[in-house]
Design a protein around this nucleic acid. Structure first.
Length: 409
DNA sequence: TCTGGGGTCCTAGGACCC
DNA sequence: TCTGGGGTCCTAGGACCC
């Protein structure tokens, strides 16, 4: 509170949003092949159970949308080519884009792999007479030439306005909403277009006859409050006027790390699920250790054949980082879920949260009482080093499962 | 031939503590 | 015979986003 708030209406925020990001990456990964396909669908792992992660603009003419089952997309657009998500390249390109953006302002927040908020407030002295729109255009060019990625950029005094403006700017455009123009800008949208209003909230609003921002703007705040309750009414009142905290937070720490997998066919046997869980635990463990973290909370997620999703979690005081401790804890959580309901499962997942810096969680003299021993930790790190050198297949987690079976619980 | 994988945030009840 | 009341942490579930 000692820092003077410049006031939300004087904030100048940009949102740089990569156009059909995964499609762009897939084309860069294979310029001669999928790079030449106009009709391109990216995604669709897990046998035939995949969904569209990103659809090229040409396929969208056929009604294809991201998140749609790949099978549906191919029915709509049978001539489309399907390419897998090039994960490595995507994270690389995401980083490249943010690096270019940081040349324009140090306050860059990665909202997702392909979207970054940039706070340009206080950079006026730097860019002197240049308008925000002109800065955004230069930014767009720099990202294109130095990272090889096409972005659209939206701008305004709040995150929500910058975000919606970026959507309107696509493809490959720039749209800045001038201060004071927020409400008029918002009028053109349906409520469902507002970030934070998903299908459930939209349906609820529709029951009150509210579909457009325009309709909501005409309501007395007290009516909104009666319908939605004080806190949601306040939230909506601000959003439909294009207002939010406007806060851009660079370098946010991750709150959780998770790995999950959908099987090509449902699994019924606990043993098969444990095998999958082991593989995920090993991947998760490596990621947790790479970040120098320990997980205090572990969560196992099951999606049953009927798509019902259940989870079980446990919090451990000292936190865990080794494959063995993560796996054994996860396995007992899995057993809990399986004994409650034993049916086919289509997905299993494991998540680490309540993350602590490894250095913060040193236990000292009571260490041997923890869920994992120093020996376990050393083993895990040796395995990490071997995998680093010889590839992920170099250390198979077989012994882990044998030992934990014998220890039985 | 339905529904991925990676996340964030919120809520609500119960345990536990003072 | 009658119920306090905050605060915090944990757990489960769910909405939502890209």
């Amino acid at each position: 509170m000692n820092k003077p708030d410049p006031g939300s209406r004087s904030r100048r925020l940009l949102l740089a949003d990569c156009d059909q990001f995964f499609v762009q990456c897939a084309r860069l990964a294979d310029p001669e092949g999928v790079g030449r396909c106009e009709l391109l669908l990216v995604g669709g792992a897990a046998g035939h159970r995949g969904v569209v992660t990103s659809a090229s603009y040409a396929t969208r003419e056929f009604g294809v949308r991201s998140g749609m089952p790949m099978s549906t997309a191919l029915r709509l657009c049978p001539r489309a080519t399907v390419a897998p998500v090039p994960r490595r390249l995507c994270s690389e390109k995401g980083r490249d884009v943010r690096e270019v953006l940081r040349r324009f302002s140090p306050v860059v927040e990665a909202a997702s792999i392909d979207e970054s908020y940039i706070d340009m407030s206080g950079t006026e002295a730097l860019y002197e007479a240049e308008s925000l729109a002109d800065t955004a255009l230069r930014m767009q060019k720099a990202v294109s030439s130095d990272a090889g990625i096409v972005v659209s950029i939206g701008g305004g005094t709040s995150r929500i306005v910058a975000k919606l403006a970026a959507g309107r700017a696509k493809p490959a455009g720039v749209l800045i909403v001038e201060p004071g123009g927020e409400i008029d800008f918002m009028r053109r949208f349906d409520l469902a277009a507002i970030p934070g209003i998903g299908p459930v909230f939209a349906r609820e609003l529709q029951k009150f006859g509210l579909v457009s921002v325009e309709q909501a703007l005409r309501l007395e705040p007290v009516v909104l409050e009666q319908w939605l309750g004080a806190s949601r009414a306040r939230w909506l009142h601000a959003r439909i006027r294009g207002s939010d905290s406007g806060h851009v937070e660079p370098e946010r720490e991750a709150r959780s790390i998770s790995r999950e997998e959908t099987f090509p066919v449902d699994l019924f046997e606990n043993e098969d699920l444990e095998t999958q869980l082991l593989e995920l635990a090993v991947r998760l463990g490596a990621d947790v250790r790479r970040e120098g973290l320990r997980a205090r909370t572990l969560t196992v997620k099951l999606r049953d054949a009927d798509f019902r999703t259940r989870q079980a979690s446990i919090t451990i005081d000292e936190g865990v980082e080794t494959d063995r401790a993560i796996y054994e804890t996860a396995r007992s959580l899995l057993n809990r879920l399986r004994s409650t309901r034993h049916t086919g499962a289509r997905l299993i997942g494991i998540a680490a949260s309540n993350l602590r810096d490894r250095a913060e969680t040193q236990l000292g003299m009571f260490e041997e009482l923890g869920a994992e021993s120093d020996r376990d930790r050393r083993l895990s790190r040796v395995a990490d080093a071997v995998r680093e050198r010889f590839g992920p297949g170099a250390v198979r987690p077989g012994r882990l499962i044998d030992r934990s079976r014998r220890s039985g619980d």
